[in-house]
Computed example of a mutant assay.
Amino acid sequence: MRVVIAEDSFVVRAGLVEVVTDRGHEVAAAVGDAETLLDAVAEHRPDVAIVDVRMPPTHTDEGLRAAIRIKAEHPATAILVFSQYVEARYASELLGSSAGGVGYLLKDNVSDVAAFSDALDRVGAGGTALDPEVVRQLLGATRQRERLTTLTPRERDVMVLVAQGRSNRAISQGLSITYSAVEKHIASIFMKLGLGTSDDDNRRVLAVLWFLGG
């Protein structure tokens, strides 16, 4: 297979090049940022692109967003995400963009070179290779979105103001509803999001995190 590697760490990138070439594959390019990755894929049309999630300039999700773009522009190129991080939002989009030829492995969970090579071969052949932790987090994100869909329009209005840091009284005035109605809406939101009473967790903060994350 012809392979393009995108990894900002020089040491990890060099190790990947060695692993891939030792398995008899051709490394057409090994780059350290997402823009160069896009150029390399357009030039070499690889069978597989091995992509890290966090790369320059912001080290957030450039690699994963580039992978989604590659799948859209070069559907014949398989993608193997190899990272320390799970970005559930973009991972769902990537996995949903194709029936096969996609993998997502976590660096800390790859037990040996053989396991990585097997995943590379599977993805290159049009299959999938997913780390169990990636699957777990994607399922959790799906459940989160499903719970958010149960909120009524008024509960969503309340959550927008809660996320802005408004008090119950300010929400009451802003939405022209009674204070007790605000309390009832917030209690309903907590129940729908599965946020039970806890001495250790601030349910208001957790609800905002759920809402913004979804």
Score class of each variant (00 low, 15 high):
Val123Pro: 06
Leu38Lys: 00
Leu209Asn: 14
Gln173Ser: 14
Ile5Ser: 14
Val135Lys: 09
Asp61Pro: 00
Pro132Asn: 09
Ala207Lys: 08
Glu183Thr: 11
His44Tyr: 06
Gly24Phe: 09
Gly127Arg: 00
Arg154Thr: 07
Ser198Gly: 08
Tyr179Met: 15
Val208Gln: 12
Leu151Val: 11
Ala6Trp: 02
Asp52Trp: 05
Thr197Tyr: 09
Ala42Asn: 11
Ser83Glu: 11
Val110His: 04
Pro46Val: 08
Ser92Thr: 14
Ser172Met: 12
His44Ser: 08
Phe82Asn: 06
Asp199Ile: 08
Ala66Met: 02
Gln144Tyr: 10
Ala125Ile: 01
Ser198Arg: 10
Ala99Ser: 11
Trp210Leu: 02
Asn109Trp: 14
Glu93Ile: 11
Ala29Pro: 09
Val81Phe: 04
Asp8Glu: 04
Phe10Leu: 13
Leu193Gln: 02
Val4Tyr: 00
Gly174Cys: 06
Arg23Trp: 10
His25Leu: 08
Leu212Ile: 13
Leu139Asp: 01
Asp157Thr: 01
Glu87Ser: 02
Asp131Arg: 05
Asp121Ile: 02
Arg45Asp: 08
Gly165Tyr: 01
Glu43Arg: 15
Gly103His: 04
Val86Tyr: 09
Ala115Lys: 06
Glu26Trp: 01
Ile5Gln: 14
Asp22Cys: 04
Phe82His: 07
Gly124Phe: 03
Asp61Phe: 07
Val160Asp: 12
Phe82Ala: 09
Val3Leu: 10
Gln173Lys: 15
Lys71Pro: 03
Asp108Trp: 13
Val19Tyr: 10
Ser98Phe: 12
Asp8Trp: 06
Ala42Leu: 01
Phe190Lys: 10
Ala187Gln: 13
Glu133Ser: 10
Ser188Met: 08
Leu38Ser: 03
Gly96Met: 07
Val48His: 04
Thr58Trp: 15
Arg143Ala: 12
Val123Ser: 06
Val182Trp: 09
Met1Arg: 08
Ala28Gln: 07
Val113Met: 03
Val162Asn: 06
Val31Glu: 13
Leu139Gly: 03
Gly32Cys: 10
Asp131Met: 12
Ala14Val: 10
Pro56Val: 15
Val12Ile: 14
Ile50Ala: 13
Gly101Thr: 07
Gln84Tyr: 08
Ala14Leu: 14
Leu161Glu: 06
Pro56Ile: 15
Gln137Gly: 00
Phe211Cys: 00
Ala29Gln: 11
Lys192Arg: 14
Ala99Asn: 11
Ala78His: 04
